Amino acid sequence: MELIYACEEHIDEAMDEVINEKETFPVINEVAEKKCSYCNNQAKYEVKMM
């Protein structure tokens, strides 16, 4: 299972990445104390690829 952490600004990009590359819908959970995989700001979401 691969994880992407995303802030509010990058959640759409994270979802598109999973859908386009893995051809499946991601599981999205809210998180705290993680950094965004795209910009290193505080992440709000964890995008899981099953």
Rank of each mutant, 00 (worst) to 15 (best):
M1H: 03
M1K: 12
M1Q: 10
M1W: 02
M1C: 04
E2Q: 08
E2C: 00
L3P: 00
I4M: 12
I4N: 06
Y5N: 07
Y5W: 09
Y5R: 01
Y5I: 06
A6Y: 06
C7I: 05
C7V: 10
E9S: 11
H10R: 08
H10I: 02
H10V: 02
H10P: 08
I11N: 08
I11T: 06
I11P: 10
I11Q: 11
D12H: 14
D12V: 11
D12C: 08
D12N: 15
E13A: 09
A14F: 06
E17L: 10
V18T: 11
V18G: 12
I19H: 02
I19E: 14
N20G: 03
E21N: 15
K22G: 01
K22A: 13
K22W: 12
E23T: 11
E23A: 09
T24D: 05
T24N: 00
T24I: 15
F25E: 10
F25C: 03
F25N: 12
P26K: 05
P26G: 05
P26E: 12
V27Y: 06
V27Q: 08
I28Q: 04
I28C: 07
N29F: 01
N29S: 08
N29E: 09
N29W: 04
V31H: 04
V31Q: 00
A32C: 13
E33W: 08
K34P: 00
K34A: 07
K35H: 06
C36S: 04
S37A: 02
S37E: 04
S37P: 00
Y38H: 07
C39S: 03
C39R: 05
C39Y: 00
N41E: 13
N41W: 08
A43H: 06
K44D: 07
Y45F: 08
Y45K: 09
Y45G: 12
E46T: 00
E46M: 07
E46F: 00
V47G: 04
K48T: 10
K48V: 10
K48L: 10
M49H: 08
M49Y: 11
M50D: 15
